[in-house]
């Protein structure tokens, strides 16, 4: 276990970041902190994916000097996946932020538990 962890320290970092983001998204009461947690969680997955696409000693997959051997280049697909993922996470962050603004305008607080309590009192 130990040697694997040190050899793949970057992947281990990604997983630790995932847990941090996950816990923040789930346990924080403040909506903005929840959204920060969401972004940490998503970024960690992209870090993991980007790491897995990189192969030490190889270069970007752009053909120069006529080298067409696949041995010379890294895998470009994870980079494409990361870009797609970033677009998705930007849009969900924007949506979450807009929801947060609406809730803040109504209840003047960012604490989700307090909002739930006030809603129960209103008895809508």
């Amino acid at each position: 276990m130990g040697p694997y962890l040190t050899a793949n320290y970057a992947e281990a970092t990604a997983m630790i970041m995932f847990t941090i983001g996950f816990a923040n998204l789930l346990l924080q009461k403040n909506l903005i902190k929840k959204i920060i947690g969401l972004n940490i969680m998503d970024s960690s997955v992209y870090l993991f994916l980007a790491l897995k696409g990189y192969i030490t000693g190889r270069t970007v997959p752009i053909v120069v000097d006529g080298v067409t051997s696949t041995e010379a280049y890294i895998n470009p697909i994870p980079a494409g996946l990361v870009l797609t993922g970033i677009v998705v996470s930007v849009s969900v962050s924007a949506l979450m932020l807009s929801l947060t603004i609406r809730l803040y305008r109504r209840y003047q607080t960012l604490n989700l538990d307090e909002i739930s309590m006030r809603l129960k009192k209103e008895g809508l």
Partner: peptide, 15 residues
């Protein structure tokens, strides 16, 4: 208020 709160909770679990 109810639906926005429900949407936030839905989004958190879904994400």
């Amino acid at each position: 208020g109810r639906t926005i709160e429900a949407a936030v909770r839905y989004m958190i679990m879904s994400l």
